[in-house]
Amino acid sequence: MYRHSVYLHSVALWVLLAGMLGCARHEAEHAGAHSLLHHIQQLPVDTIAYDSSLYHFLDSLAAIEVAGLPQGVPSFYTPRRLHQLNSYPCSNCHDRPLSQLRKEKSPDKKKAHWDILLQHAGEHIMDCNTCHPTQDLDQLQTLKARPLPYDMSYQLCGQCHTSQYKDWQGGAHGKALGGWVTPSLRQTCVGCHNPHKPALEKRWPSRLNTVKLINQSLE
């Protein structure tokens, strides 16, 4: 009789254990062969759009759609560049050739653009004229001396920085503005990089990572 009940109880225990293993943790299916990325490509797609408040944001930045995107790359917007330029149009001052302006230099007149020191690629590769044509300073110029509006300055950068340009177009480079929904809004190259000195400078971090150091000394 006892033998019988030992048998019964051990069966019960094994059933319990089997149940435990069966339910345990990750469902077995996920493991191995099929990854997350494999799945998401087969799922239904829906594109989420901005709500109206974010459209106002887009307006406030006077965003414009980025031109010249390769086939298949989703469109996106950047803030207008012209709105951020203080002394535009340049032709206000540059109404005669540069050589003539230089001749007019007199001690009482302040030097224009004194704060610009070109630190970009090196003098033997780039000077002011690489991007700014001497004839029409209201526009930029490409390496092939074709005029390019300031709002499309990214195309100028993209001439040399091809890999960064490609990443920016796709979305791997450049700071996202607005939200994650469409339409996508991204900072343009000169939004972050000073075109005359594109390298970002070192600075102090805005805070410490943990409590530890503060207690020690720094405050």
């Binding site: 998401i40 797609v45 594109t47 796709g170 979305g171 791997a172 700071k175 469409t182 972050c192 970002l200």
Partner: peptide, 21 residues
Amino acid sequence: CPTGARIFGNLLDPNSQIRWV
């Protein structure tokens, strides 16, 4: 993030930034 190092988006949207990355 001032450097654009952080990218967020919808994994199910093939046109999202994150999917491009």
